[in-house]
């Protein structure tokens, strides 16, 4: 969808490979057990992201704390079933909701020194490193569509957009890129 679409010396948009995605809803009491089963401690602070391993490679784990009791868990596609089974087993004694949403969203990586400025073409958040430090993850808007923004490093963003709205987002980002040439 995006190859070569938004690609300048200052920023580059890359579509993520197919991934398994889950929404975990659970009270704080379940966090420890969930983190243990998941192989990555779930970030406790709201609007925080955590990860280990390389994205899309075996063993990689992503956990994004996006609502007070809401975590998004993203793993390589093939590991989805075992991760789900491990979490369900570990959380059996905790009230919780684990729902697979692998195909609900499309993932992107936006990288480059101009990435934050490009996002500001449609996203009203302050991307200074004080206001939006690396490690922060939150939902917001890009023009008319919602998106999840996780800042992994100053010039490295992971984005997740609803599947049907991704074409709009990519087109809008490409249009905005004209203003940054």
């Amino acid at each position: 969808m995006v190859d070569g679409f938004v690609d300048t010396p200052r920023f580059r948009l890359i579509e993520a490979p197919p991934l398994a995605r889950f929404v975990l809803r659970a009270p704080d009491a379940a966090l420890k057990a969930a983190g243990k089963a998941y192989g990555l401690a779930l970030p406790e602070g709201l609007n925080q992201g955590a990860s280990h391993g390389e994205r899309g490679k075996p063993g990689a784990r992503v956990a994004l704390h996006l609502g007070p009791d809401e975590w998004w868990l993203i793993v390589p596609e093939a590991e989805g079933p075992e991760v789900a089974a491990a979490l369900e087993a570990a959380l059996a004694s905790h009230p919780h909701s684990l729902v697979e949403v692998s195909h609900r969203q499309v993932g992107f990586v936006l990288e480059g020194e101009g990435a934050a400025a490009l996002l500001n073409a449609g996203c009203p958040l302050d991307f200074s490193e004080q206001a939006f430090p690396p490690g922060m993850a939150t939902r917001s808007l890009f023009h008319r569509v919602g998106l999840m923004i996780w800042r992994m490093a100053p010039g490295l963003f992971r984005l997740e957009i609803d599947r049907t709205l991704a074409p709009y987002f990519v087109t809008a980002l490409a249009e905005a890129a004209k203003d940054h040439s």
């Binding site: 929404v23 809803r25 009791d69 009230p95 919780h96 909701s97 729902v99 697979e100 949403v101 692998s102 195909h103 609900r104 969203q105 609803d162 599947r163 049907t164």
Partner: peptide, 12 residues
């Protein structure tokens, strides 16, 4: 109530 909802419109 101990219940959560998740939108799966786009997943399926």
């Amino acid at each position: 109530l101990k219940v959560w909802q998740t939108s799966v419109t786009e997943h399926w």
